[in-house]
Amino acid sequence: MDNVRELPASGSTRLWLVTTAPGSAPPGDGVGVLDAEEARRAAAFRFERHRVRYIAAHLALRGILGERLGRAPSDVRFTRLACPGCGGPHGRPALADTPGPHFSLSHSGDLALVALAPAPVGADVEELPSAEVAEELTAVLHPRERAELAALAGPEERRLAVARAWVRKEAYLKGLGTGLSRGTDRDYVGALADSPGAPDGWSLRDVPMPEGYTAAVALGPGT
């Protein structure tokens, strides 16, 4: 997969950066490889560029997992674990017929991030938000994170810090299996550079990204 590049490992977590821009991924619409749910989601996109990015990200995930498991990408089977918040069948995605590895996929803009780990893992990559969006996100962060942001000198520094806090938070909530339904003001992950917070039993690390993006990975108990 020419559009997939393995990044330096983050502890026991292996990471891959995927370029999903139209023309960067191998041609094809995923027919015969993606399952019915992935195909349904792909068909639901209004804009073709979003559909192409989604397909490229999911084909990359299947390729990475298939290589790890010794099977064809089309033979990788997924399920959803129970949500730890409500017990519903919409928690973390998992492999349906094998106990591991744990994995996480995130995509934004022309990039996707894949993480594989021996314990629950969450990954998040995002395009940097506009100043206006950063202000909106600030209002729903943890009180300690809002205090850190208020102490920063300029709007650009605050914008970058909001983006940093947001991907850390999303990575953790994805790894936890609740997603944003848990509430983004409940858990402290930190907004300052090189100092992510870590909810009990979890570790959080920032992942270097190309200009215009930010990313983080969260690893849960079990390693």
Rank of each mutant, 00 (worst) to 15 (best):
A39R: 14
A39V: 07
A39C: 10
A39S: 14
R40K: 13
A42E: 03
A43V: 09
A44T: 03
R46G: 01
F47N: 08
E48C: 00
R49N: 14
R49P: 10
R49T: 14
H50A: 08
H50W: 08
R53P: 02
R53Y: 04
Y54F: 15
Y54I: 00
I55L: 00
I55F: 04
A57V: 00
L59Y: 00
L59P: 12
A60P: 02
L61C: 01
R62Y: 02
R62Q: 00
R62S: 10
R62A: 00
G63V: 01
G63R: 09
I64G: 01
R68H: 13
R68D: 11
R68C: 05
L69T: 07
G70E: 10
R71F: 03
A72G: 05
A72R: 13
D75G: 05
R77F: 00
F78L: 10
T79W: 01
R80K: 14
R80A: 05
L81E: 13
L81Q: 09
L81V: 00
A82T: 05
C83R: 07
P84S: 03
P84G: 09
P84T: 10
G85V: 11
G85S: 06
C86T: 13
G87P: 11
G88L: 12
P89S: 02
P89F: 05
H90V: 07
G91T: 12
R92H: 04
R92E: 06
P93G: 06
A94D: 12
A94G: 11
L95R: 09
A96S: 13
D97K: 13
D97Q: 07
D97N: 11
D97H: 14
T98A: 15
P99I: 10
P99Y: 04
G100D: 07
P101W: 08
P101C: 05
P101E: 11
H102C: 14
F103Y: 15
S104T: 04
S104P: 11
S104F: 05
L105K: 02
S106N: 12
S108I: 03
S108C: 02
D110Q: 13
D110E: 15
L111Y: 05
A112T: 02
A112Y: 01
V114W: 07
A115R: 12
A115T: 03
A115Y: 08
A115M: 12
A117N: 08
P118K: 12
P118D: 06
P118M: 05
A119Q: 14
A119C: 14
G122P: 03
D124T: 14
V125M: 05
E127C: 14
E127L: 12
L128I: 10
L128Q: 11
P129V: 12
P129C: 09
S130R: 11
S130P: 09
A131K: 07
A131W: 04
A131G: 08
